[in-house]
């Protein structure tokens, strides 16, 4: 339940995080805060440690130095035992879905409910069906196994599983990578409508310049192991940092920004 103090407190607070794998330095002194109710994107080139940072935030990897607080709790504590209560407050959609291949889609979506609640089987069935419909999957896909689904459907199913507990915080790892432009745009709309309906805070890792322009409230650009810049897309596109400039002012970046400007003008007209 959001109380007065919670609203002030950042949902995620990353402080001076450094990550090293042996000799390889992934992050050096990365700090950022994510506020309640925003769609926060982590962008950057391949191999700049975006996904690693995401995995550190959700407690799958421990950073070499620094602290990460999730709802005010040190994310290192998430590793301890099973079922830290914080786990119920966030959902994660992994890059390739990470659906359990021996379960049907409906069973996959039902897993968190079965494990963490005492709801009746009928209510679980209805809730699962509602979530499957919410992410735009046809009802008959519920009885299919993950290997019978296409990549886009698997992504949606993973999203349904991530939101089935109505979490406050949703993590998306490359939600639109490998999807066709129409489905990718549909996915962006889906995230926006979920955010407005459920009041979600969304943290996503993405390369997709179109979805950065369309849905991200703030973006952090990682590169060279550091946070090169944090801000809205407008702010970042005016940045002087050479890496950010290259990232956003490259041919694709420019096309996406022109498209965004055009959309903006049209929505005003």
């Amino acid at each position: 339940m959001p109380s007065a103090t919670n609203v002030e407190m950042p949902v995620i607070d990353v402080r001076h995080v450094s990550t090293k794998f042996g000799q390889a330095v992934v992050h050096e002194d990365v700090s950022l805060t994510i506020r309640r109710g925003e769609i926060f994107a982590i962008a950057g080139g391949n191999g700049c440690g975006k996904t690693t940072l995401l995995r550190e935030i959700i407690g799958l990897i421990t950073p070499s130095a620094g602290t990460i607080r999730l709802f005010g709790t040190d994310s290192r504590r998430l590793e301890e035992g099973d079922g830290h209560p914080i786990h119920r407050r966030f959902g994660v959609m992994f890059q390739n879905g990470a659906l359990f291949s021996s379960f049907t889609l409906a069973e996959n979506v039902a897993v968190p409910l079965r494990e963490h609640t005492t709801l009746s089987a009928g209510l679980i069935r209805d809730l699962v069906a509602a979530k499957i419909a919410m992410v735009g999957l046809p009802p008959d896909s519920a009885v299919k196994y993950p290997n019978e689904l296409s990549g886009g459907m698997r992504r949606r199913a993973a999203l349904a599983r991530a939101i089935v507990m109505d979490p406050e915080l949703l993590f998306l790892d490359e939600p639109t990578a490998g999807l066709d432009p129409i489905i990718a745009a549909g996915f962006d709309d889906l995230v926006l409508s979920l955010k407005s309906l459920l009041g979600l805070t969304v943290v996503m890792v993405t390369h997709d310049l179109d979805s950065l322009w369309r849905i991200a409230n703030r973006v952090a650009v990682l590169g060279l192991g550091k946070v090169l810049g944090i801000g809205t897309m407008q702010e970042l596109s005016r940045s002087d940092d050479p890496v950010i400039r290259e990232y956003f002012q490259g041919p694709r970046g420019r096309a996406a920004s022109e498209q965004a400007a055009w959309n903006h003008r049209r929505s005003r007209a």
Binding site: A129, A130, A133, M134, P138, P139, V143, L197
Partner: peptide, 21 residues
């Protein structure tokens, strides 16, 4: 209201699409 409206829409679909293998 918005949430309930969306649920109503989903709910109507569920009734029709209840299929089991």
């Amino acid at each position: 209201a918005e949430l309930l409206e969306m649920m109503e829409g989903q709910w109507a679909q569920l009734e029709r699409g209840a299929s089991v293998r």
